[in-house]
Design a protein around this nucleic acid. Sequence first.
DNA 1: TTGATACTGTAGCATTCGCTTAAGTGTTGG
DNA 2: CCAACACTTAAGCGAATGCTACAGTATCAA
Lengths: 115, 115
Amino acid sequence: MLQYQSEPLDLAFQALSDPGRRAMVERLSFGPASVSELAKPLPMTLSAVVQHLKVLEEAGLVKSEKVGRVRTCTLEIKTMTQVERWIAERKRFWEQQYDQLEAYLAQTAAEENDR
Amino acid sequence: MLQYQSEPLDLAFQALSDPGRRAMVERLSFGPASVSELAKPLPMTLSAVVQHLKVLEEAGLVKSEKVGRVRTCTLEIKTMTQVERWIAERKRFWEQQYDQLEAYLAQTAAEENDR
DNA sequence: TTGATACTGTAGCATTCGCTTAAGTGTTGG
DNA sequence: CCAACACTTAAGCGAATGCTACAGTATCAA
């Protein structure tokens, strides 16, 4: 199916849904790394890692630059933060519900005492 | 390829990568809803919505219970929190890097002043 | 210059995804 | 009872995904 416009969050969540790609992000959260450094712990060919890297770059989660024959990758904090913010925003509302539940329980308890 | 065990985060991120499913989660963050209530704003058949719901349930993001002919869905806060926590954990490390950069710049500026 | 290194790019393939259509099942209001 | 309602289930299809294998290209070290 043809995708008209993939919103940033679609791409970011999709990119983070693969354990290999999350492993790469975890590694990059400690600092920049080369492609083969990212590939070393992963049970797949270098080719596959490069393809995962492309997914991460297109999602805006990683940037990379080639110097000589080495491509150095770094985490794009801005996009990671946007993902975090989407969840935090939902949290704001479900916590509000929780507060209402708490208030209701407190109210019920108070009425219980009145009798 | 056969997947041996899909870790919870795989399923959660994968489930959240679809804009329709995120819309459903957004709706549920305000409180419980029936299947057709979730379907109403979405440009797809009820059948498709039910399939999306199944993905969300298998990811542990939503729970639902059927009473009479109505299935009522609620958000599973625990799983949402786990996703948030994974990002927060990465953040802990990239922010550490940022602190180091700040310290370095402060150091450089100090040396600049010394000359 | 030559061999190793560090990728890069493409073709192919099995699987999964997101959707629709179509044909159900179980509830409920009148 | 029976029609409307709220799903439920399965088949099928085109597109996307995650790999591997294989054949490059560019850089560096000796």
